[in-house]
């Protein structure tokens, strides 16, 4: 064979190898989700009244949402999205690797029993899902860590109150304006994806969850 032939083959092989290396590097980059923050290992109370440390979920991928049960509109959608994800996780045989956590940012009203009834009304599978309430200051600090905005809006007789009412009236209630978000947390307890809460797409969520499941613990 002429020398130029082998030279051409060599250059061709080099191109193939380089292209392969670039593809591997790009794939690795695509696999890597950013790290936003670490979830603190603080104690909460689950829907059965048992203490639940957030650190208990280390070693599993966690889908975490914050809601309040008096929210009739957006929070049920957040829960519905998470339930949709839970069903898909089960369908893919990942239930032992993915845990779901819902934390209320209205602990004064959302007792363990209220959370239990709220979840049962929505046919939640508690096998790998905990609904948490807790000390108001702990929950306030958690919202700060996670960047969840909350603001109480008091309403009297269906009309917004100008300030926090002092009246002892059964007609007084409050709503909470809040950030609409779902968090994906890796096995080390680090937030790796911010999903748009009630607007979360199942396909997008599952694609990220599969990536996090593939990541080895400690990597």
């Amino acid at each position: 064979m002429p020398r130029w032939f082998w030279l051409g083959v060599g250059i061709g092989l080099l191109f193939v190898a380089a292209a392969g290396a670039v593809k591997i590097a790009l794939d690795a980059r695509a696999e890597s989700l950013p790290v936003y923050m670490t979830i603190p290992d603080w104690p909460f109370t689950d829907q059965e009244g048992h203490t639940f440390w957030l650190g208990q979920t280390r070693g599993k991928v966690v889908v975490l949402g914050m809601i309040y049960t008096h929210c009739p509109d957006v929070c049920p959608l957040i829960t519905a999205r998470m339930r949709e994800i839970q069903e898909q996780v089960a369908a893919e045989g990942l239930s032992d690797q993915v845990f779901f956590v819902t934390i209320t940012f209205d602990p004064e009203r959302d007792t363990p029993e209220v959370l239990r009834r709220y979840a049962r009304a929505r046919k939640v599978d508690f096998t790998n899902w905990a609904f948490l309430t807790g000390d108001p200051s702990t929950i306030r600090h958690l919202t700060e860590v996670l960047g969840i905005y909350t603001e109480r809006v008091y309403v009297i007789h269906g009309t917004p109150a100008a300030a926090t009412p002092e009246a002892s009236s059964n007609e007084v209630t409050y709503f909470i304006n809040h950030t609409d978000r779902i968090f994906l947390v890796d096995r080390q307890g680090r937030v790796r994806a911010l999903l748009p809460g009630s607007r979360t797409e199942l396909k997008d969520a599952m694609e990220k969850i599969r990536r996090l499941v593939r990541e080895r613990s400690g990597s």
Partner: peptide
């Protein structure tokens, strides 16, 4: 939406809306 009846949880500050539950 589905909803669960409140459990009558009383809240401080004179407001007794803790047990109220909602639907839309």
């Amino acid at each position: 939406r589905p909803g669960a009846m409140g459990i009558g949880h009383e809240m401080g500050q004179g407001m007794s809306h803790g047990g109220e539950s909602t639907s839309a």
